[in-house]
Structure formats: structure tokens, C-alpha cells
Computed example of a mutant assay.
Amino acid sequence: MKNVIKIISGGLLVLLISAFTVNTNTNTGYKIGDVAEDFSLKNIDGNMVSMADYKNAKGFIITFTCNTCPYAVMYEDRIVALNKKYAPMGYPVIAIMPNNIDVKPGDALPEMKKRAEEKGFDFPYLIDEGQHVYPKFGATKTPHIFVLEKTGKGSVVKYIGAIDDNYKDASEVKVKYVENAVDALLKGQEVSEKETKAIGCSIKV
């Protein structure tokens, strides 16, 4: 009986150690202050796009989004508005579709192109083929936003999270997280609210 208890105790100990190890080694992607690696992804026009293409940019509003998530759809007009406002100031939107299209065929490249035309996207809408880019960022939702600032050491992550505090109704928004972050960076100030919880659909793998 003592041996059985020892075996059970040992087994529980192994499970606890394993669980602890898994939790502590999980790669959650970029943190605030990290330098984001550049990427080269296919745009809806067939051309490859990277951050290096934007020679005069001061930073980027990297937006992980898709066609099929209701949350992403509700934010489309606001993403278009962000680009219209901030691209001329040096912070363009780059949208990336991270989903596995075998799981979500409505997010395939032809459907992305169709949606972009319908909504008047005036920014790149890239597909993360092979799903290599979104895990580096640590994106988990659509939409999920990363504001980057170009510095001497590279594109530094300054904000991660939601676009604003009301996904349901743009007219009821009280805090515009992304706008506040970019406005602060344009003034040479620190971003006051660096992280918020992204609200949206889980990225399909």
C-alpha cells in the first residue's frame, strides 16, 4: 500500500512539474519593448509586402484581422479610419489575415481581395501563409493590434491589444486605445496604456 501511495505521489509530482514547465515555457510572442522582426507576406494584389518597404514610416499599426469573424467585421470601418488618419502622419495600417484557410475558406486570398474591394481598404491586406508570422507577435484574436515605433534598433512594440473599448458601437467608444498610443508616439511621449485585452475570435490553426 505504501508503495502504491509512493507511485501515486510520484506521478502527481511529475504531472505538477510537467504542468509548471509547460506554463513557464509557453511562447506568447512579443512583449512591450521588444523589437519586431520584419516579414514578407503576400498582399491581395499578389505582391509581397514588408515593413522595410515603408522607408518614410515612423511606425506601424499592425492589425491581425479576417473576413469571417463578426468582431473583425464590426471593426473594419474603424481600421479604415485609422489608416486614413495616421498613414499621412507616418503610421500606416498593415492588415494581416492569420487564419488557416482550410478551416476558414472564407478567409482565402480571393475572398480577402473581394472583401477589401467592398470595404475600400486602402492599406495592404496580407495573408499569413503557413501561419509563421502571427505566433511571433503573439496574436490570439481577430482583431488584435500591435503598434510599432521605428527606432534605431528596429520596430519596437509600443502597444498591444484592442482598438478601443467598445466593439459593438463605434459611437459609444469612450477610450480609443490605438489612437491614444499613436498620438503619444507622434508627440514623443510614452504610451500611457500599453496593453489591453484583445476582444475577438480566436485565430484558427
Rank of each mutant, 00 (worst) to 15 (best):
M1Y: 00
V4A: 11
K6D: 03
K6C: 05
G10M: 01
G10V: 02
L12S: 01
L13F: 15
L13S: 07
L13T: 11
V14G: 06
L15V: 14
F20S: 09
T21Q: 00
T21Y: 14
V22P: 03
V22E: 00
T24D: 03
N25D: 00
T28D: 04
T28G: 04
G29L: 05
Y30Q: 00
K31P: 09
I32F: 06
G33H: 10
D34G: 08
E37I: 00
E37F: 01
D38R: 00
D38Q: 02
L41I: 11
N47Y: 11
N47F: 06
S50N: 11
S50V: 10
M51D: 08
D53V: 10
Y54G: 08
N56K: 15
N56Y: 09
A57Q: 12
A57R: 04
K58Y: 02
G59P: 01
F60N: 09
I61Q: 01
I62C: 01
F64W: 12
F64I: 07
C69T: 01
Y71N: 13
A72G: 09
V73Y: 14
Y75E: 11
Y75L: 13
D77K: 14
N83C: 10
K85H: 08
P88C: 07
M89N: 12
M89E: 15
Y91W: 05
P92Y: 05
P92K: 02
I94T: 10
I96H: 02
M97W: 10
M97Q: 14
P98C: 01
V103W: 12
P110T: 02
P110Q: 04
K113H: 06
K114S: 15
A116V: 07
K119Q: 12
G120Q: 09
F121H: 12
F121V: 05
F123H: 10
P124A: 06
P124E: 11
Y125L: 03
Y125I: 04
G130D: 04
P135C: 08
F137T: 08
A139K: 03
K141E: 09
K141L: 04
T142K: 07
F146I: 02
V147A: 04
E149N: 13
G152D: 12
G152V: 02
K153D: 13
S155E: 13
V157R: 01
Y159Q: 04
I160N: 07
G161Q: 01
G161L: 05
D164K: 02
N166M: 10
Y167L: 06
A170M: 12
A170R: 03
S171N: 15
V173A: 06
K174S: 13
K174P: 13
K174L: 08
E179Q: 12
E179I: 07
N180L: 10
D183P: 10
D183Q: 06
L185E: 08
L185V: 05
K187Q: 13
Q189H: 11
E190K: 10
E190I: 04
K194A: 13
T196S: 05
G200E: 06
C201Q: 09
S202H: 11
S202W: 01
